[in-house]
């Protein structure tokens, strides 16, 4: 019960800061929208490459990637806030006030999820407004959002673990770069089958590839590799929750 109270308090404070500060809320909405515009608008001709078979069109194809990207970066950006809290000493206040400190990690994760849900809603509205076609039925889109929420959880827990180990804003690139690489070493612009060479080999073992392909399957109404995708996303979330809690223990030991 006290853990829940701590989690809610930490989440409230993080969300309050984000949504009352235009410098934080605008990039959160603008960047995914911008990537969606740049990829879906600028590269739509790629859909004409032989072998590119995605019935819902390039807008829907890119929407799934940008949605997952916003989920992952929503987590990382929340991680920046954690690093800032340690740098300014505010985290010490949280560590002191929270009887059960795992509630702090849960609070940050809850904030990252709520923060991303706003972005996801905004992005979805824009996508439908510009004519995105969806082939799936009732359950397919929620399944995509659930998958993205797991990606969000994995990303915030990864970033949280880094922030609590380094306890400095200098941790920013370390949080960001691996997430960037995992995202972009997946089939971002074309389906997996059209990738060749080293990038194909990397994409094959990249867990995000399963998530991306399954997500595109949901939007097309023909889900593929659903179990593998959920397994990969949930596996990452569990793995990084252990990473985050160990990070918390390291922060506690460091004082």
């Amino acid at each position: 019960m006290r853990n829940l109270s701590v989690a809610r308090a930490v989440a409230w404070r993080t969300l309050h800061n984000v949504f009352t500060n235009p410098g934080l809320v605008i990039p959160q909405l603008a960047f995914p929208l911008f990537f969606f515009t740049a990829f879906a608008g600028g590269l739509s001709h790629i859909h004409d490459v032989r072998g590119f078979a995605y019935p819902e069109g390039y807008t829907a194809f890119q929407f799934v990637f940008v949605l997952l990207q916003s989920a992952a970066f929503g987590g990382v950006f929340t991680g920046f806030g954690i690093a800032r809290d340690f740098e300014t000493g505010f985290a010490r206040r949280l560590l002191l006030a929270a009887p059960h400190r795992t509630g702090i990690v849960s609070g940050y994760a809850l904030a990252a999820l709520c923060r991303w849900l706003v972005t996801a809603a905004f992005l979805t509205c824009v996508a439908f407004a510009v004519g995105m076609k969806v082939g799936g039925h009732g359950v397919d889109l929620p399944a995509l959002y659930l998958l993205a929420a797991l990606v969000n959880a994995a990303a915030i827990l990864w970033a949280c673990g880094v922030a609590m180990r380094l306890r400095s804003m200098q941790a920013g690139p370390i949080m960001q770069m691996p997430v960037f690489l995992v995202l972009f070493f997946a089939p971002v612009y074309v389906p997996l089958g059209l990738l060749t060479g080293w990038i194909h080999a990397v994409a094959l073992v990249n867990p995000l590839t399963r998530v991306l392909e399954a997500g595109r399957g949901f939007v097309a109404g023909s889900p593929t590799e659903v179990a593998a995708a959920y397994g990969a996303a949930a596996g990452l979330a569990v793995l990084f929750s252990l990473w985050a809690v160990r990070g918390l223990r390291k922060a506690e030991a460091a004082g």
Binding site: M1, R2, V6, A9, R13, H16, T20
Partner: peptide
């Protein structure tokens, strides 16, 4: 710096359940 004095106290009260 982004919270008010009252918000700080309410946050602390919530953290302390």
């Amino acid at each position: 710096p982004l919270l008010t004095g009252r918000e700080h106290l309410r946050l602390q009260a919530a953290l302390q359940a």
